[in-house]
Design a protein around this nucleic acid. Structure first.
Lengths: 222, 222
DNA sequence: TAGATTGTTAATCGATTAACAATC
DNA sequence: TAGATTGTTAATCGATTAACAATC
């Protein structure tokens, strides 16, 4: 069987909504709820219940008519579907404020993200420790990956790029060079990568564009 | 004419792609290019030229067959359409690493964003200056807005929320209280706001979900 | 049992792409 | 003029929503 025939095309909007449900479900679990219905979830987020049901269906979970879904089953199904039940070993490059924000945010740790080391080109940062992670010289990225593999048997799967735009492509190339299979890019520039590397860009400008455009159109309408 | 009949529904994906084109067009201008074609832009970003043409069309700009679009006209049209040619006065609440990242990033300044003051609840930060902006006590947000209006005649249009999830809703309520008409939320929680306040959320978890899901599905396919 | 809910198929809606005329 | 490009209408594709049967 060819890989292409096995990888179904999943609706990206559904994948993007799952973390929202997950957060709500964890709160429900903390309240001691055993089951939850799509109607309830939809109501919480102002959506249609059919959409929630379709979204949950892609994880493979099933509920019981009249009753709903078991909260713990649902949490497990979403986490497993997103790959958040396994550790994702990552390197982060660019220890500016954005890089620090990611290193300090515990939310991603709960999603399996394990940033094992941080890198920067600025010598004044070398040796600094951020939330338990040492800042290393960018030059040592390959050596660090190799040592990690040799000593702990760990493979770096993901590279997080939080450098300025102009530095992003060379940094991404370095990350691909050490064998990462996914790049999470925060720099405001599209990166050119081999097609077998999974790529995702955080587009803050796109978000700002939607906001300001709506704000200005609202003004015009008044 | 009712407002609802005047506000056309614009394709959000198109609005989100405009900043990408804009960045490219500014580079083109710096290189001294006078005109650029959709074909060229599409090629740069791996899209179809029709899509680029449709995207540009929503700004109201028009090009010339055989020639293309004038670079300076196009830049002006996109910036005006997005509301990036006018200053947007904003308050930022939450001076953690994420808040600092936004205060220090000059890219948004080029998009008209003018964060005039930053607020936090943590007294150890009060009086600190970040990229020229003083950190003030959250308590003083209303007084600061009022003084700004009285002394400089400036209205705070946007609130940027970079506090932890649990603090986000009360902070948003405060911002709405001082009259902001747009909220840009970085906290991983959906905010409840009056319907006349424009709202946009930066969903880092959604981005991470897409990335890890693809990474794990790729693994399965191998 | 009746009502609420799941799961699925069909209809609708919106965005992308194809096709092609207009034009410089 | 011929070829490249814009602008627009029609076709396709994908996601959302409606409708409804199944079921606890």
């Amino acid at each position: 069987m060819k890989a292409s025939s096995r990888v179904r095309n999943l609706p990206t909007p559904s994948v993007q909504r799952l973390p929202v449900y997950l957060r709500f479900l964890k709160e429900a679990r903390n309240r001691g709820d055993d089951v939850v219905s799509c109607t309830r979830i939809a109501e919480e987020f102002g959506q249609r219940s059919v959409q929630v049901r379709k979204d949950l269906a892609i994880t493979g979970v099933s509920g019981r008519p009249k009753v709903g879904y078991r909260v713990d089953e649902l949490i497990e199904a979403i986490e497993s579907f997103l790959g958040w039940d396994v550790k994702t070993t990552a390197f982060l490059v660019g220890v500016g404020n954005l890089g620090r924000a990611i290193l300090n945010y515990e939310g991603f740790v709960a999603h399996g993200l394990d940033v094992v080391a941080a890198f920067d080109a600025n010598p004044t940062l070398f040796g600094q420790e951020i939330n338990g992670r040492l800042v290393r010289p960018l030059d040592q990225i390959a050596a660090t990956a190799e040592r990690l593999r040799r000593e702990e048997g760990r493979i770096v799967e993901m590279g997080i790029v939080t450098v300025p735009a102009r530095a992003a492509q060379p940094v991404a190339d370095k990350l691909v060079g050490i064998g990462v299979r996914a790049i999470w890019n925060y720099a405001p520039i599209r990166l050119d990568l081999p097609s077998d590397v999974v790529y995702e860009e955080v587009k803050l400008s796109a978000s700002f564009a939607v906001l300001t455009n709506r704000l200005r159109r609202r003004d015009v309408a008044e």
